[in-house]
Design a binder for these strands. Sequence first.
RNA 1: GCGAAAGUGGCGGAAUUGGCAGACGCGCUGGACUUAGGAUCCAGUGAGUUAUACUCAUAGGGGUUCAAGUCCCCUCUUUCGCACCA
Length: 827
Amino acid sequence: MEYRFNEIEKKWQNVWREKGIFNAPNTSSKPKYYVLSMFPYASGVLHVGHASNYFIGDVISRLKMMEGFNVMQPIGYDAFGMPAENYAIEHNSHPRLTTEENIAAMRIQFDSMGFGFDWSREISTCRPEYYRWGQYLFKKLYEKGLVYRKKGFQNWCEKCQTVLANEQVEDGHCWRCGNIVEQKDLEQWYFKITEYAEELLDFSQVIDWPERVITMQKNWIGRSEGAKVDFIVEGTNENIPIFTTRPDTIYGVTFMALPPEHPLVQKWLKEEPDNKELQDFCHKVINEDKVLRSSAETIKEGIFSGRYAINPFNGNKVQIWITNYVLMDYGTGAVMAVPAHDQRDYEFAKKYDIPIKIVIQKPDMSLKLEEMQEAYIESGIMVNSDKFNGMDSEEAISAITNWAVENGWGEKTVSYRLRDWCISRQRYWGNPIPVIHCPHCGIVLVPDEDLPVKLPDNVQVGRTTRNPLLSVPEWINVPCPKCGAPAKRETDTMDTFVDSSWYYARYTDPKNDKQPFSRESANYWLPVDQYIGGIEHACMHLLYARFFHKVMRDLGWVNCDEPFARLLTQGMVTKDGAKMSKSKGNVVDPKYIIDRFGADTLRTFLLFASPPEKDVEWSDDGIMGAFRFLNRVWRLIDSNLEVIKCGLQSTECSDNISEEIKELRYETHYAIYRWREDCLQRLQFNTAIATCMEFLNAIVKIKDPGKLNAAEQQIYAFACITLPKMLYPFAPHIAEELWQKLGNENMLNDCGLPEYEEQYLTRNIVTYVIQVNGKIRGKLEALADINQDELQAKALENENVKRYLDGLNIKKVIVVPGKMISIAAGK
RNA sequence: GCGAAAGUGGCGGAAUUGGCAGACGCGCUGGACUUAGGAUCCAGUGAGUUAUACUCAUAGGGGUUCAAGUCCCCUCUUUCGCACCA
């Protein structure tokens, strides 16, 4: 019978569904294992690139089931957001409809690929049953003081008509549409992720995260230790706190640098409305592109404020400059400028003829002001620094900080590059922020019993460039929940990254309508044992989710410290060297492949082509290779069915076994051994599949199994029945079919992992390589347990070896048991 | 500029602790067979050389070692991340 993949795949997909084998119970005698692949955006189409991500999770999930775990592998949809809204606009429809249509289409696609998802846990972030709890979480965060509103200059994408978080700005462009990001002064909602900065730097509770992701997050959070020091504005009692990582250079301060956004500068602007130069400069800088402005290549500019600050350490009076190179939202938003020892300050001082003062000398004291071409930023010996002179500058950092603390001028502090997370978006298709603005009571949270704040349906998306919610007065105008006075709903919706920051926890209890999830479910399943997703989320989703998880822990909802114990960042599928994408027109539709070769072929090819974390280049020829392989497996078992079944029943234990079959027995157990290493220890599925192929080649070498004696048939049958087991995680349909054909009544997820026997992992005859002075000069076959002297003697008898030893004295012989004999010889 | 990872046949990729470099697959070459298929089976396939023998070969150069793709030093290239964060 030929390999009818279409029939087989449908058959088993139905069986799996009917038996519900992938529906994980929330209680079990088995240990739990939670496998999760980052949920897809509800775009309606899965190309093979998406599919390959989920195949990795599916392999792990099936392996863990075989291993005896209670495995949960849920799936859902990230369904809010601009692409869905834009898609609806293009199709002149409503995102609710188009999104649900998309989800239905994706479900069919997922099913056709044979995924073992627990469909009973399916979620979609755009459904009120889900987003209701996102609003509830927002309220909890608000109550904990982790939510605030702030007016300020924001990343704004004109095309998407919304603000963007810093993480969503890539090289000055919108991460979604590529439009140039502008600055707009807006009042926005923030989550205080910085409150958790220190803990987010701690990765001690994750097991197997790629070092790369950890480094990226650490850099993104950007912890700097330093000091805060107060400088007083001369003649006033106004204080300018500065943050510096180099307190050792404080005697070298020759000016102060403030950004135009600094509150003091803003105050001076009000005091001097007629100072045109000052007004113009500040206005110009504030409106400059933020990204451009914060680029190292931008020319530093500034204007003297006419005011002076007093250095508390020496009483020196220094000019206060307003500049374009200081950022308001880092540190204290003010810099003590030390041109001699900071390159940026140096450039600025040179340009505006501000004095430069050396306070750190090179160890050889060779630093001269006249010869300086750039700032000396290394450590050295303290000079011109009063009582600290002669001290090593590294030591001076703490000495000077302590001195400031003792005198009440400053303190030791830590600054982070990480900014608070701006979560408001001026778009319709997102989770409404559950807030009502009352003219009397101010910001009022929507009471729990009124949740969810549902998105109004009667919205014409695309009619206006403004937030469509602004055009629904019956939705906006509500009585204040506190005082009953006419009030207005918040029209901002939440960043979709909020929705995806806690979905992994919702899966543990997806139908709960009393709370986001029960503690029991969450604590049973969490943390996610294996998370799988793209590296592009290193500083976005993965950081946000860790933040949310820690907040939920502090709310007492979950016990563990981290959401994702192990993380695998999978590579993408490329075609013609580029990432598959609709815009590039290089997508491959899985349906096309499945119709022609089956899902098992698609899975096998993608998993075989490269290790999971590396990119895979799409190859039509590669598909053929995988297809051929599965056909060979099919033919082997299908055409030897009777012999195998007979062998399986045999209990013959005679020693009358040919060398050929002994070799097969060795190959079988060795294949199992390697497969287990690759699958369970290294998660290297490409080599696990290669092992399956080699194993098949080894079995096929036995030409006429019908002629084997009973003992041999038993070994042969064991090999043949092991192959479907090994194939199951990768090509589950064909594996189940062959398993059943061989007379098994259970299912493969339930039959345990293939087991090897230690005694068969060694061959009795081993090939030894003989090296002379590091070069291979011969080989010999010997019994594995041969003694060393005998082996050495045999090696020296080899004709070719003799030739190369001619005229030389043997100096040393090294025997590597079971592998080689290395002879070192010389004159 | 700083940091990290990587560099192996025509291609994708193997090589567990330093122990036969190129597993497995693709492609290619030759052959068999035929039910002419998107077949299948057999043999070969790093380069070089009169070769069952040898030489060279894991980006390049040096080193350690009986033995190096693997360890150490230098150089080059590529990819990724960060890049006025005081």
